[in-house]
Design a protein around this nucleic acid. Structure first.
Lengths: 199, 199
DNA sequence: ATGTATACCACACAAATGTGTGGGTGTCAA
DNA sequence: TTGACACCCACACATTTGTGTGGTATACAT
């Protein structure tokens, strides 16, 4: 799809993506120049042309803030409060809030998603093929759902700490908790969300 | 939060929101004018001022496309392929794809989210307090997870059809399938996704 | 009668913004 | 040594774009 980027080109692309996802919209050429301390708008335009040629962005002519990311995706979903009360018309007056996943984005790639394999967490509602959103962190608290490396495999489990002993506990009666030697396993991160999609 | 909007004000706001979420970014004043066939930019500016005063948007001065929605949220999450194979470094070369929830957005408000109450679908991995994303549709296929109205309550169940009979089947051994009279219940929509968040 | 709000218009102006021209330095492969 | 690239600069220019001024018409409440 896209040719390889140099370090600097990648930094420019990342900056644009951040602005598009976190801030209001795409930056102007001069805003990019200011951020990278370029004293010429031509410099930025050269970068944009390269990024476009390599297939990472699309530019529109003579329009302001007209940088479009290839593979850009957006999400905003209204969250309705529980509607069991009984109004048969679902209006947006019932909106409870919004899915706010914006903050977990782009914090230096500290967040990623994993596809779940196996049924060890099935009783916690984490099914095979679900996606878990993982925030990379080394420390975790008792009861957290975490992703850890054991024997070269990434697994999703409960983190349990009892009297100096650390267990990785599945949520499936058919599986047994794993007693862990603190030195031989490593925590990848904490599961902060589960996403499942039906066809 | 926000005062009531008139019909036309609401249409302008919806147009802006659509452009921000589906298209590249916020429209310019003249783009809005063109869409609504206003021959004056001042007309649009009046609308923007009203929308801002009523608390639906925020405007920045002397910036192009600087319309910001209150409660705007964005999402894009890289989806890593299952990494059980064993590389201890999670690189973005493992990206399997992207959570693509963009398409389900703003198709005339056909999608909304519901917070789950009760444990009737617990064996399908749908837990209390989960959010289910629902696409509004009246028809559904055998085996779909749907949201239906029964007795003034919205419930999440499997849709089962056997020999002219329609059942709403829970995923919980403690609950029994509900035989439904086709005429007295109504399907709200199909569950297309489940989202759960941990603290 | 007066004020306030909605819903438009025309026109002008300055700032913001994209674009063009014409440079420069270095690196690296042909 | 020539060319292609990455990586910068200065400066000018035309268009886009936000903003301001000053209108018109209707409706509605005080």
């Amino acid at each position: 799809m896209g040719a390889a980027l140099t370090e600097k080109q990648n930094r420019v692309l990342k900056f644009i993506a951040q602005r598009i996802w976190r801030e209001k919209g795409a930056p102007t050429i001069r805003e990019i120049a200011q951020h990278f301390k370029f004293s010429s708008t031509g410099t930025v335009r050269d970068y944009l042309r390269v990024l476009q040629k390599k297939g990472y962005i699309k530019l529109a002519k003579k329009k302001s803030r007209a940088i479009e990311l290839i593979n850009e995706k957006l999400l905003q979903i209204p969250v309705l409060a529980q509607i069991c009360a009984g109004t048969p018309t679902l209006t947006y007056e019932d909106i409870e809030g919004y899915l706010d996943l914006e903050r977990i984005l782009f914090q230096d790639d500290q967040i990623f998603a994993l596809r779940v394999k196996g049924e060890s967490m099935i009783e916690a509602g984490i099914m095979p093929d679900d996606l878990v959103l993982v925030r990379r962190q080394l420390l975790c608290e008792n009861g957290d759902v975490i992703v850890a490396f054991i024997d070269g495999e990434a697994t999703v489990k409960y983190f349990r700490q009892r009297k100096n002993k650390v267990f990785l506990e599945p949520a499936n009666k058919g599986y047994k908790p794993i007693l862990i030697d603190k030195d031989t396993f490593s925590v990848i991160g904490k599961v902060i969300s589960v996403v499942r999609r039906y066809v």
